[in-house]
Design a protein around this nucleic acid. Sequence first.
DNA 1: TATGAATGAGGCTTCATTCAT
DNA 2: AATGAATGAAGCCTCATTCAT
Lengths: 197, 197, 197, 197
Amino acid sequence: MDARPSFAAGRRELTKAQNRETILAAARVVFGQLGFASATVRDIIRATPLASGTFYNYFKSKEEVYQALRDEQALAVRPRLRQARSAATSAEGFLKSSFRAFFQFVAENRGGTPAPAQRFRLDSPEVLAGFVELRKDEEAAMTRSLLPAANPALLSAVLIGVAFELAEQVKEGANPDVVADFATALFLGGLKALPKP
Amino acid sequence: MDARPSFAAGRRELTKAQNRETILAAARVVFGQLGFASATVRDIIRATPLASGTFYNYFKSKEEVYQALRDEQALAVRPRLRQARSAATSAEGFLKSSFRAFFQFVAENRGGTPAPAQRFRLDSPEVLAGFVELRKDEEAAMTRSLLPAANPALLSAVLIGVAFELAEQVKEGANPDVVADFATALFLGGLKALPKP
Amino acid sequence: MDARPSFAAGRRELTKAQNRETILAAARVVFGQLGFASATVRDIIRATPLASGTFYNYFKSKEEVYQALRDEQALAVRPRLRQARSAATSAEGFLKSSFRAFFQFVAENRGGTPAPAQRFRLDSPEVLAGFVELRKDEEAAMTRSLLPAANPALLSAVLIGVAFELAEQVKEGANPDVVADFATALFLGGLKALPKP
Amino acid sequence: MDARPSFAAGRRELTKAQNRETILAAARVVFGQLGFASATVRDIIRATPLASGTFYNYFKSKEEVYQALRDEQALAVRPRLRQARSAATSAEGFLKSSFRAFFQFVAENRGGTPAPAQRFRLDSPEVLAGFVELRKDEEAAMTRSLLPAANPALLSAVLIGVAFELAEQVKEGANPDVVADFATALFLGGLKALPKP
DNA sequence: TATGAATGAGGCTTCATTCAT
DNA sequence: AATGAATGAAGCCTCATTCAT
């Protein structure tokens, strides 16, 4: 009946992708306004022209949209971090370019996630994968002596803690480069002093 | 004919205090297992031998128990931090005694809060009051030159981020003194290198 | 130990009667404000310095206080109606004195019962007993030819309907004597025209 | 492939209307048996094959169903009253046709509302609108001298009181036409005797 | 695939009432 | 008799999810 099924399919694909995006966009807004905890699937659907049943064609649950949202962010930030680090030739360069990339990303996405009651922690597997990447680069950097050797678990924890806590400052309006330089200085000085593991 | 009404009252008071404790203990467990977000008042009651209505004789809502729990922790940790700092005569002493007191406290309370999905952030007004206290001491320490002058907002954020993120490591079994020494070294080295505000 | 137990008992009696009155007074206010439907026993107790358990020493339930309240009113209004009628020597006198007595009573008790959503119908057994009395007097009056013979069930219904509906007007501020005269005229003219049963 | 979406829609509409009717019917029975005050949404749902949540797809609360029920009755009775009055050429005709229409309506709907504890007063805005209509017609009738001039507020109150109180008699089995004639005679005789306002 | 009504489990809370003191 | 905390049934309502169309 249809001579161009593939085109039709293409159109459908497009609609599907659009619906998925519609839901994700709504979820971003809703999570931002209500926090993950008190946001409901209904809230997300209501922020959408779609019907409630349609949600379940794309996501199994609220958790899954949340995941997808975090993955999306991680996917966006990882290449920027990777690229930033790849150019580093010194400990300072390594840290500063990483922090700058990260806080600039946070600054660019400020509006989206007002992060009310419950902070929007980027600790999904996808995001953590980003940090694993960081860890590998750290270790490589240690090997290359860009960074001093140090207890990797604690170092990672500390980097994450500093990064996310300062991210809140950036979300509230702090200048991302100033913040990045602060973090860089802290770690640059601090790492030298760390006890060897 | 009776003559000891105060004893009767005493017993009742005792029961009341016990019930309150029972609910708080259950809440600690439940929040630990499910996170604040998905825990429900019913979950808390179910973890208790009490009746559902009894909960509302003590707390108006889930939020209120949570508050009480955080306040309780803050109330316990603050005097220890204060005491630790009061004895400090050097930057190193100041930091090390603070971190040790904090991570030891975390280690002692390890069991209670498995903290899965949603981390159990100690960011109630009471706890924050504890940090305000810290800030004042920091500033006093800066004045006394125990600590170098630095952007206080960022410094606070960074201390909090490091403290809570490393607290997770301690909860998962890391030695609190090792962690405290790590943090101390990091900041001792890092603070020197920080840009002046 | 006590040389005058009877006096002590007397004091207790007094307290008991006072408590009963306290509860009734609170109930009057609460029913007036919330209506019987949405008023709760708790509301009544809260409007009282007494403890919740004490309520049950005096009344078995909300219904019972309500009853008591209505009985109280009926008890107060019946002798006045009786007396008013006893003096009547004509149909007009019979009706007018009855209506005046009733609406004056309503006017005197205006404040107490704002009667919101659900009207405060005086249809308890006690009050109805008052109307049975009225009916007997009506029949006696018919026999004495003060009133024309008419279908007694319908006549009663109509008297009650008119009385309570006009009582609302009085509660809202209408002059009780004007209202009584209106009702008297209506029935005086109307009764003559009624079909014989 | 399909071609009759409108039919599908039609069926759904039908089911929706049916469910609404199911709930209204159940509410009629339940309010009749328990009175508005003590009836609960649960009671209504239980008198239905529907699920609890379904109730809330149709009505926001018990109050809303009650409203709908009263409006339904008012909507049904008003045109009949209007039509009855429009044909009147005399005071007697005006009153008799109105009362007959009203009590016949009550008689037809007898079964539905056993009205125990709390009478099912038809005093919703919709019903009152019906009486406002009556009032306008009364005034017009006074102007046309079908009815004597009289205090309109009291006259209305009295008409309503008589109508609803006699309605109870009709619900309990009295012949609606006999009752209507009784009321007509009462007012026909009574109105002449009323004091001018 | 999209729709949106139906479902019923389950959340929160209040209530009347009991009962130890 | 008075107290007031404890009780648990029961109210109201929202939610995630299913499923007929």
